[in-house]
Nucleic acid binder design. Sequence first.
RNA 1: GCUGGGGUGGCCGAGCGGCUAAGGCGGCAGACUCAAGAUCUGCUGGCUCAGUGCCAUCGUGGGUUCGAGUCCCUCCCCCAGCACCA
Length: 948
Amino acid sequence: MTELREIDSKWAKKWNRMKIFEADIGDKEKIFATFPFPYMNGPLHLGHAFTSTRVDVWARFKRMQGYNTLFPWAWHITGEPIAGAAKRVAEGDESQIRIFRDIDEVPEEEIKKFISPEYMARYYINDSKKSLIELGHSIDWRREFTTTSLHEQFDRFIEWQYLTLRDKGYVRKGTHPVVWCPNDESPTGDHDRLEGEGASPTEFIILKFEFGDAFLPAATLRPETIFGVTNMWINPDVEYVKINIAGERWIVSREAVPKLKEQKDGVEIISSFMGRELIGKVCREPIKGREIIILPAGFVRPDNATGVVMSVPSHAPYDYMALKDIQENPDEAEKYGITKESLMKIKPISLIKTPEHGEHPAIELVEEMGIENQKDAKLEKATEIIYKQEFYKGILGNITGKYSGLKVNEIKKQLLEDFIALHIADKMYELLEMVRCRCGTTCVVKILKNQWFLNYSNEEWKAKVREALQDIKIYPPEARANFENTIEWLEDKACARKTGLGTLLPWDKEWKVETLSDSTIYMAFYTIAKHLNLEKIPGSKLDRGVFDYIFYGNGNIEELSSKYDINTELLEEMRNEFEYWMPVDLRCSAKELIPNHLTFFIFQHVVLFDRSKWPERIGVNGMMSIEGEKMSKSKGNFITLKKALRENGASVTRASLLYASEGMRDPDWNTKSAKDMEIHLRNLFAMIKDASSLSFRKERKNIDLWLESRLQRHIKNTTDNLEELRTRSALQSGLFDVWRDIRWYLRRDKPEKDMVFEAIEIWVKLFSPYVPAISEEVWGILGKNGFISLAKWPEYNEDKINIKAEAAEDMLSELLSDIKNIIKVAGITPKKIFLYISPEWKWEVLETLSSMSKEKLKNAMKELMKRENLRKHGKEVSGLITYYTRKPERLRFIARIDERAILEEAREFIEREAKAEVEVHLSEDENIYDPAGKSRNAMPMKPAIYLE
RNA sequence: GCUGGGGUGGCCGAGCGGCUAAGGCGGCAGACUCAAGAUCUGCUGGCUCAGUGCCAUCGUGGGUUCGAGUCCCUCCCCCAGCACCA
């Protein structure tokens, strides 16, 4: 058990010492493979290792194919979580400390120092780097860096990126609603929430109804229904206030005030009163100036939007039921001084007609569904149905003026713009569910002003991204739709925030470039990081001019050199390095990053770099689970890479991870499979190690041709699979399928020495990207020089494909299983086995039938009976035709082989396996020994069998 | 809810119009062994049998086709994302 782990460590050290994965500019074609830098608020885990090993396997494969291959690595520390965790350590947060101690395995004395976010990041970086080396990743470590000012040169690079983006017009200042914690004075992302994960601001439209010197601002999601408003709903038993707001006066629920304060200017309370004081009065609808009565409604929630609701009974089931209830019980309304007469005067007003219903869809549906009163739970469903039907299919009526005759979804956007232009509408954002920050405070929606945005909604930009995407190879292909879709819905993206770690926005240093925005084109930075690190170029020298030269070739090199005090050779070398390594050949990540990082990655490349530097391939994979469950620190089923390596070693970890899944499916890690993989690898190693002590045979036989042929197929399969990042299939074919064939080969006969060692050599190469340490060890045992990591990948040679040899082996293995089957069912132990080879004429039937078209097959009998030699076997021919045509696949004719020669050659093998003597006869020979008449059963590729 | 991906034998997973529904794991039996482990071999949906056979099955229910895990529709379930969060 320990042996494999010793091998893993030995080679990890050796690669690292010999620096064989450091890649420099060369004459050879290059490959540049990257993994999205991991976020260092904790150690690497199996999820990271799964994806990164896919990248490493691909890089190793490409390196062996002869490409000059670069696989660099860096670390991400931008943003909140590291800073937040450091703060929690400082506050003595027990659950945070427990995670560091128990899951991350950080020693107590180190945890104390985690009050410094930089220290924490450095600690995890060191820790993780050790794990990656141990895992055997073929990384060029000279190009390592971190984000933020922790790496001053990278900091300058991000400055360059944002200055360039701004100059090109892709960064704009804007205003945007966010979920906001008033206590922290910071946006509250999903990660920072105690409650309300997934909730995002919903845009309510405020329609302003005139009411004395103020407005009653009704909040709605369906502003078009204002044409059908019949009354207002106000909750009589809650407190309302009159406020000043942006130069107007509004009447809203008291709860609405703090929310509006975050969204509008100049909000202050003038007076307050109970809702009942409004009931029975009238307001004025802003479009036509109709008088609208205010009615009491207990269902109006003061904590939702403005607490003012307009009533459109014709198109809103709730409104209809509420109106119906109040009209049927006018006594209640009379308490507020509303006359029965004015109540009964209210009639639903239709403005949308749907194909499913007529003029008053809500009323009709409520009746269809048998809804009794306004407390009925079915109202929710009814509202949903009506909304959908009206939105997609509803036609607006004459009452709506310029919108009439159109569908709701066609005019919604325009209508809103019109209403806002007429100053009759406004917007308010609201959370539809409770959201609470980690600090316990209830969150609200805040309109963040002067926020910096990347203009991802820009249509020209999108068009360019779509164009780039067409040429990017996506593995697996089914992930492509996801990218296409993301491009469609993507809107402007805030690219800076005020808190956490990050590069300062160069022109507005209150802001820091946010985490998804400083991680999009840093692959370009890898190409020069080597020089910046080795030559220790200080960040202060890296002005825009330097980067403009390196990435665009702009400027005069002599002038730049003297201006920034960087010698011309170095500048030139960095430019060459950028030109050589870019574009990125592979970027690989888990599927969760498609809608953000991976798509942004394309966006940024297309505007910052020349077309020739746009990405080549993107790989996507599923999410790691542990023993069938989602991995999480709180569940405690979190497996760090360090722990996995300690328990399994690198080879077992790598192979088990990649054997777990491919494509978009989620891989699962389980201890049992890892143990099984360990057993497999140990056996494999032992088998190869002992191969030289086998006893060998001299002459070549059919089985050697077979193995040679099969190996070629496996080479092709493994290569094709790896090419498209099907890492699981490649492991299957390169390791397990070859193994199976070698086992058959060794079982069939004594091995021929050259053949078996050729097979082993190919085999080891095919699986070496997966278990590189074991492969290096075997490579030495085989007496090879140098590293297998740098050896030549086997090349597929079609000339070695031998269909006849393969057909012959197929025949033998089927024959053997038939014999064993007969022995079993007959319950006899044969001393002798008689095999009868198919007569010539049966071959003729097979060959003829297999060459016939479907239609011709119907008249096959007629055709065949034209032939003299077949006519005498008429009955049997007809039987054969039935046999073959019933399952047309049987007609797949592979190759005519010399069955007799094959059987004679394999006689010993059959005798050994069946433990009986074997005699081979041609069934058409006269006077053969055939007491049971079995020879009649002989068919091409299927000798008849008689046992005695 | 919306968008995208997916549901295959005891389990993991190939297959994406017609090869035998690959391969692995687990289980059972045999060989080897003093024994255990490892290894090797066979079996592992049902029935039948001196073999080349029949039936069933690929989330559910329909449909297209000479033929369907494979294509189309209905429904159910799982995964990811839904943004200022890494």
